[in-house]
Write a protein that binds this DNA or RNA. Structure first.
Length: 474
RNA sequence: GGUCCCAUCGUCUAGAGGCCUAGGACGUGGCCCUCUCAAGGCUAAAACACGGGUUCGAUUCCCGUUGGGACCGCCA
């Protein structure tokens, strides 16, 4: 560990791991791996009403799928309440925090009035000098924020950002039920866990001066900060559910590869010259905050789709065959528990991988290889399975019936023979055959298709096509 | 409303004062390859928000305007 870099990803389990969170986790992970430091996972679940164990599971699952492994944790803040309480008590004892007896309703009224009157909607500090407890009221604890001077946040991405302390609120660090709140727990944990760099979305930038003041009140060194620009939807508003799929799991289910999502996410706000495609090793090697942009980025599903296609092309057919299996079942291409020869499937996949942008597309294309029956697309049937193609199909059927070696090379010889005898181009023969075998006009090369389909299925489908055309009525 | 952040093709971005006739990528159009579709190759259209400075010279530095975003919770 060259310089003991320690970073963390600290999601709140109030939803699935989403695109924005995944990118934050990724940048933390990259920085840790790049600097040979530690990456810590911490679950910020102090809001017990909204946090669930299911979401914790989902977040962990998402990170594992993306290959973002952590060195310590997951820690849960709900396991650490005693620690936070001791810090709150310390601050109160030292006069750096105080009890506040204002009710949520009062606070809300005053906030509304302030906004309506054009004033800053912050706590007015009326409980600051209170000597005696108010009977029958469970108080909250507020942090006594300095009201003069400035707080400077020196951000690795945004540069020096100056805040007037007069703008800062006496924020609540402990609720009336005795549970601590985010701005306190985040500081206590980052100190306790030895975090050297806080890397998070820039929606937290405005919280940072408050946290800096808490670090100081506690007498701790302030860590480095890096506030990443937000990810926006096509309408430039912060990415959210209404922009469509935003959870990492949803992309997995749509047939995206984790390395494609990683590659896409890293290029949202980060760049390395003109390079678009990066291996994990390159990412770790090249990552630096100097190359992180400051402007928010619009999420572009089209480019992610292209990248996914690139990565599908780069995977081995064998890996892809394994990856596509669950999709085969889900797309009802194969039955649950149906035996499919892995070697054969790999060959079939090899013909389709540069034609598929997702595993779902791959699974759907595999249908004509795997299923027993073939269904003709209506337009394709009319155009290519007719009296004109009947003699061609019949001749081919007859020739193939005499063959046993269904290799692409041998098949090509047969096709060439027919083409020469009939003085036609390959297209005139290949298209009807393609429709007969696959049901449509789009497929890999016709010789490959036949080779993979095999003798039995090929002959059966040619027979069916010939039969469907029927004898010449004329 | 206040505070803070941001501003290069439709989108992601390169650009750290002259290398810019502003480069790459996605998407879009055309051409090539070709048994279809892809993949691949070539090619076209497409941007420095605006106004002031600073400078011999600004996409690049400063200020302002405009526009966008985030935050202002007993959420995180």
């Amino acid at each position: 560990m060259s310089d003991n870099i320690r970073v963390r990803f600290a999601p709140s389990p109030t939803g699935f791991l989403h695109i924005g969170g995944a990118r934050t986790a990724l940048f933390n992970w990259l920085y840790a791996r790049h600097s040979d430091g530690a990456f810590i996972l911490r679950i910020e679940d102090t809001d017990r009403t909204r946090s669930t164990d299911e979401y914790i599971e989902a977040i962990i699952e998402g990170m594992e799928w993306l290959g973002l492994d952590w060195d310590e944790g997951p820690f849960r803040q709900t396991d650490r309440f005693d620690l936070y309480r001791s810090y709150v008590e310390k601050l109160v004892r030292e006069g750096k925090a105080y009890y506040c007896y204002c009710s949520p309703e009062e606070l809300e009224d005053r906030r509304r009035e302030a906004i309506a009157g054009g004033r800053l909607p912050k706590y007015d500090g009326r409980c600051r000098g209170l000597k005696e407890p108010v009977p029958g009221v469970s108080p909250v604890v507020r942090f006594l924020m300095p009201q003069a001077g400035q707080t400077v946040v020196d951000d690795l991405i945004k540069g020096k950002v100056v805040f007037e302390n007069a703008q800062l609120d006496d924020l609540i660090i402990m609720r009336s039920d005795g549970t601590p709140t985010y701005n306190l727990t985040v500081v206590v944990d980052d100190v306790d866990m030895g975090i050297t760099h806080v890397i998070r979305g820039d929606d937290h930038l405005n919280n940072t001066p408050k946290q800096v003041q808490i670090y100081r009140a506690l007498g701790y060194k302030v860590p480095g900060f890096a506030h990443l620009p937000m990810i926006l939807g096509a309408d430039k508003a912060r990415l959210s559910k209404r922009h469509g799929a935003t959870s990492v799991t949803a992309y997995r289910e749509m047939g995206y590869l984790p390395e494609a999502l990683i590659n896409y996410l890293v290029r949202l706000g980060w760049s390395y010259g003109d390079q678009e495609i990066f291996s994990r090793e390159e990412l770790i090697k090249y990552f630096s905050f100097e190359n992180v942009g400051r402007a928010a980025a619009v999420f572009n599903p089209e480019k992610l789709l292209w990248l996914n296609g690139q990565y599908i092309m780069r995977r081995s057919p064998e890996e892809l065959a394994d990856l596509v299996m669950p999709f085969l079942v889900r797309e009802k291409v194969a039955g649950e528990g149906q035996e499919i020869d892995r070697v054969w499937l790999s060959k079939a996949v090899a013909t389709l991988q540069e034609r598929s942008r997702t595993l779902v597309e791959l699974a759907q294309s595999l249908r004509y290889y795997i299923s027993e029956e073939v269904a003709y697309e209506e337009k394709a049937g009319v155009k290519f399975l007719n009296q004109k193609s009947l003699p061609l199909l019949s001749e081919l059927r007859e020739e193939l019936g005499k063959m046993t070696d269904f290799s692409a090379a041998e098949l090509e010889k047969v096709f060439t023979g027919i083409m020469e005898r009939r003085q036609i181009k390959l297209g005139a023969l290949a298209q009807p055959v393609r429709v007969a075998l696959t049901g449509g006009t789009v497929s890999p090369g016709i010789f490959e298709v036949i080779e993979i389909m095999g003798r039995e299925k090929t002959l059966k489908r040619l027979d069916k096509a010939i039969q469907s055309i029927g004898p010449d009525a004329a």
